[in-house]
Simulated scan of single mutants.
Amino acid sequence: MHCSEGPWLPADFGKKQIFFFREEGVQHPDVRRPLFALDFTHLPTTVDDDDNLFSVHSNPTILSLGILLLEINDGIKIEDHWAPGDLMDGSIPNESTNLTTALRLLEKLDDELWIGSQDAVRACLEWDEVNDGREDEDFVKRVYELIVEPLEDVLRQAWGVTPEQLGFDRIHKRQQAGSGGT
């Protein structure tokens, strides 16, 4: 969310621009060590609403985040779990393929995910329902309450890591200093 001054993420931002360091022989990546591959010289300044007109999800960026979180939590790639029923003609992905696959995987992994991770992923995948029609109302606050807070809880409970240890407190302080905050 701290990566651009325009829309909070570029429209084409997705899992292909996020990398994690991984210890040798360990299945899950080290979530404390992300690497973002962003080209800041070509960031769009506006979002094309026509692209989202017939979307199966009201916020494709939030959907991408949910899928990425699911992939990180289970150490998988969503594409490896597409079923013929998720695809057009049993072989061609469409705009709902990743969403239907992710929802099915989330249900399958119900007992295997930390509750906070499960809540954050579900909020991303089912944004329209959990957001309760308040898309334009305090968007950042809703993202924080429904996605970030549960993830912070998981970091503390599962890995004993706080947002401050990840350096997010420095980003927040820098933003406050730049905006005249105290």
Rank of each mutant, 00 (worst) to 15 (best):
Glu23Phe: 09
Ile76Tyr: 04
Phe40Cys: 09
Ala102Pro: 04
Met88Trp: 10
Asn131Cys: 14
Asn98Trp: 04
Ser55Cys: 11
Asp49Phe: 05
Gln165Asp: 08
Asp86Pro: 06
Lys16Thr: 11
Asp110Gly: 10
Ala11Gln: 11
Ser4Ala: 08
Leu70Thr: 03
Phe20Pro: 05
Ile147Met: 11
Asp153Ser: 14
Asp89Cys: 08
Leu68Ile: 01
Glu107Ile: 03
Lys16Glu: 15
Pro44Ala: 05
Glu135Gln: 14
Ser64Ile: 02
Ile18Phe: 04
Pro29Asp: 03
Asn59Asp: 15
Gly85Ser: 14
Pro10Ile: 00
Asp74Thr: 06
Thr61Ile: 05
Arg134Phe: 11
Glu71Lys: 01
Glu164Gly: 14
Ala158Glu: 13
Leu43Thr: 08
Phe36Lys: 04
Leu38Tyr: 03
Ile67Lys: 02
Glu95Trp: 04
Asp138Phe: 12
Phe139Val: 10
Leu106Arg: 06
Asp39Met: 06
Trp82Val: 01
Lys108Gln: 14
Ala83Pro: 00
Ile78His: 03
Glu135Leu: 13
Val154Gly: 02
Glu135Ile: 11
Gly116Ile: 00
Asn98Pro: 01
Gln17Arg: 11
His28Gly: 09
Asn52Cys: 08
Ile171Cys: 07
Phe168Glu: 03
Pro93Ala: 08
Met1Gln: 10
Asp111Glu: 13
Ser55Asn: 12
Arg156Pro: 00
Asp136Ser: 10
Asp51Leu: 15
Thr182Asp: 12
Val154Met: 12
Phe36Ile: 15
Leu38Ile: 15
Glu126Asn: 13
Glu145Asn: 12
Arg33Lys: 15
Asp138Asn: 15
Leu103Met: 10
Gly25Asn: 15
Thr182His: 08
Glu71His: 04
Tyr144Asp: 14
Ser58Glu: 12
Gly178His: 06
Asp169Val: 07
Ile78Lys: 02
Gly25Ser: 14
Leu166Phe: 05
Leu63Met: 08
Gly133Met: 12
Cys3Tyr: 05
Glu5Thr: 14
Asn131Glu: 07
Leu87Ser: 11
Asp153Ala: 13
Asp136His: 09
Gln165Val: 03
Glu135Ser: 11
Ile67Tyr: 02
Asp49Leu: 12
Thr46Asn: 07
Glu126Gln: 13
Gly178Ala: 12
Ala177Cys: 04
Asp12His: 13
Ile171Asp: 07
Ile72Tyr: 02
Ala123Arg: 05
Thr101Tyr: 02
Gly25Leu: 10
Ala120Trp: 08
Ala158Thr: 10
Gly180Met: 04
Ala123Asp: 03
Glu126Gly: 00
Asp49Pro: 12
Trp8Lys: 02
Tyr144Val: 13
Pro60His: 00
Leu103Tyr: 01
Leu68Lys: 00
Thr182Trp: 08
Asp86Val: 04
Lys173Phe: 07
Phe21Ile: 06
Arg156Ile: 07
Gly25Tyr: 09
Arg104Pro: 07
Lys15Asn: 09
Asn94Thr: 12
Phe139Leu: 14
His2Glu: 11
Leu69Cys: 12
